[in-house]
């Protein structure tokens, strides 16, 4: 993969100063009587690659969906780049955000889904150019040039004119990564992006993500069961249980010498 030649095309926010980019303040999310996130606090610094691990049902997907505004918190606030995501300040008071405000803040966030969710009615090229043209206002030429750079990055240059169904799962997921990056988000959310893939296709997708982690300064928030991958790319690993962060730290610490017994149990079950 020619990471270096595409580097300039995918560089996101040049000013990575390690400042706080994502902040959850006492975020509570319930589904009926089930409290999935319980007054959750955590922050992610700009440019960091953070992996969320934890048992099934611990709320990892819910966190990403809240950030993507696919779900709303019941209590608490979420800030991205200092801006409230689900609230806005009006006359010094915090009120639920309107559609327009949400859209503005959300533009800084991109997401790749477990099931790819490519648009099956559009060719690969248009899957990638649709939002840059209709959301960012790029011209068709600009958007296509950007898309070609990204297709090169994910190694799919020759597939631009195919429909998603003509591609393998691994290729589709790489298109989905390109589609998310085309919006030049500050934050990329990855929710178990390889778990719907046949085993032999996983490595290709993870290689692309490693490449992106290495060559861009995009902030990554990643849920994965691929522990080797997590170890490679993560600056920080957050261990979740029952809607709380029970332990966090650099991957060497969490994977080799966790403080919490619960983390030890979880890792011995998945490793």
């Amino acid at each position: 993969m020619s990471a270096d030649s595409s580097l300039s095309k995918v560089t996101v926010n040049p000013a990575v100063d390690g400042s706080e980019l994502i902040r959850f303040d006492k975020v509570t999310k319930r589904f009926g009587a089930n409290t999935v996130l319980d007054a959750l606090d955590f922050t992610v610094s700009s440019g960091k690659h953070v992996t969320l691990i934890g048992p099934s049902g611990s709320g990892k997907t819910t966190i990403l969906r809240l950030l993507m505004t696919l779900a709303r918190p019941d209590e608490g606030t979420i800030r991205v780049g200092g801006e409230y995501l689900t609230h806005e300040e009006r006359g010094g008071r915090l009120v639920p955000a309107g559609e327009k405000h949400v859209r503005e803040v959300r533009k800084n966030i991109g997401m790749v889904f477990q099931q790819f969710n490519l648009f099956p009615n559009m060719k690969v090229m248009r899957n990638i150019t649709e939002a840059p043209v209709h959301v960012l206002g790029l011209s068709a030429d600009e958007a296509e040039e950007r898309a070609r750079g990204l297709l090169e990055l994910v190694g799919l240059t020759e597939h631009a004119d195919k429909f998603p169904t003509q591609l393998s799962g691994g290729q589709q997921q790489r298109v989905a990564i390109a589609r998310a990056l085309a919006m030049r988000p500050q934050v990329l959310l990855l929710d178990e992006v390889t778990s719907a893939l046949d085993p032999e296709l996983v490595a290709g997708v993870l290689d692309v993500l490693r490449d992106i982690a290495r060559t861009t300064d995009i902030t990554m928030l990643c849920v994965t069961h691929e522990m080797n991958f997590a170890r490679d790319i993560s600056d920080d690993v957050l261990m979740f249980d029952a809607g709380r962060v029970i332990e966090s730290g650099p991957p060497e610490k969490i994977f080799n010498d966790p403080d919490q017994e619960r983390t030890r149990q979880f890792l011995s079950a998945v490793l």
Binding site: R103, F113, A131, V135
Partner: peptide
């Protein structure tokens, strides 16, 4: 997932319907 992908790309509602 199609609606969610459109939201994740910030596509406006009208565009999501039409495209």
């Amino acid at each position: 997932g199609q609606w969610e992908a459109a939201t994740a790309l910030s596509l406006p509602r009208g565009r999501t319907w039409v495209a």
